[in-house]
Design a protein around this nucleic acid. Structure first.
Lengths: 157, 157
DNA sequence: GCTGAAATTCTGGAGTG
DNA sequence: CACTCCAGAATTTCAGC
């Protein structure tokens, strides 16, 4: 990557598992002054290396008891559906949206209050994609051992 | 959830998509003083509602050009494999580890420098799980529209 | 949960290599 | 051009209420 050196990569790696670290502490770890770290952060954000900062929340505390993956098989999956995928990504309960290889080429991770909400969500997807949506497969998440470079302690089921 | 009120949930929701917000700004949004927000954050972290803070990084800037899902089918998948899954979760290139419904009950998200590294990683999984690993299916991620409650702008391919 | 003062951190400009 | 230094501003922390 142009204009990104080893120190920048160190910063990115640290931030990935420690998103709320102060500039001072970050500077100590990579051997730079807080001001320099700040400059680099602004550069990295502008370049798109840092997409944003997030806290990893246990969904149960937000009354989101059901987390699920939804895999979509589309009749046509080219960049013309990107705007629809962006719409899906903007929904409040949608945590992640990927395009991947394989027949079921869209993967969505989302959380719900109960299974009824899952049904409603699938209905919304059908409305959005219309006839282009050939199949929607739902898989429930039973356990999360790690997420976003931060390990979860296992909750007893 | 006991001991968690509506303001706590507001705080969690805001942090999810804005992990580096200051206590002052957070206080303004939920109508509390910075000191109170701090107290609540400590409570929420202790309760396990907040697992940690993370920056969402574009993997390409860390020379991780290949992101993939690995789905594992295990002969036996009960809590006796949890310690193995924790080991997998601790690997540096592993971003997420889930247990889910369905035949391929383990889902791993990881990033790699190239496809050779994927091969090495699958080999390591075979070593770890031994005969218990019946199948490992690799799916490559082509596009990320959202991750960890933070939207990605689509990168041009 | 608030207040106020002290400690720490952040910020922006001038200066250095 | 990126980094450092430094002073003023903002934030965070910690006491007492």
């Amino acid at each position: 990557m142009p204009g990104v050196d080893e120190k920048d990569r160190e910063i990115l790696k640290i931030l990935r598992s420690n998103g709320r670290i102060t500039l001072t502490e970050l500077g100590k770890r990579v051997g730079l002054s807080p001001a320099s770290v700040k400059n680099r952060l602004e550069k990295l954000e502008k370049l798109g290396a840092i997409k944003g900062y997030s806290a990893v929340i246990d969904p149960a505390f937000l009354d989101e008891y059901v987390s699920a993956f939804l895999e979509l098989k589309l009749a046509i999956d080219d960049h013309t559906v990107d705007s629809l995928l962006k719409k899906v990504a903007e929904l409040e309960n949608v945590e992640a949206v990927y395009r991947k290889t394989g027949e079921r080429s869209i993967l969505i991770k989302a959380s719900f209050h109960d299974t009824d909400e899952v049904k409603v969500f699938v209905g919304r997807l059908k409305d959005l994609f219309g006839k282009n949506l050939e199949r929607a497969e739902v898989t429930l998440i039973l356990d999360t051992f790690k997420e976003g470079w931060i390990p979860f302690e296992r909750r007893r089921g």
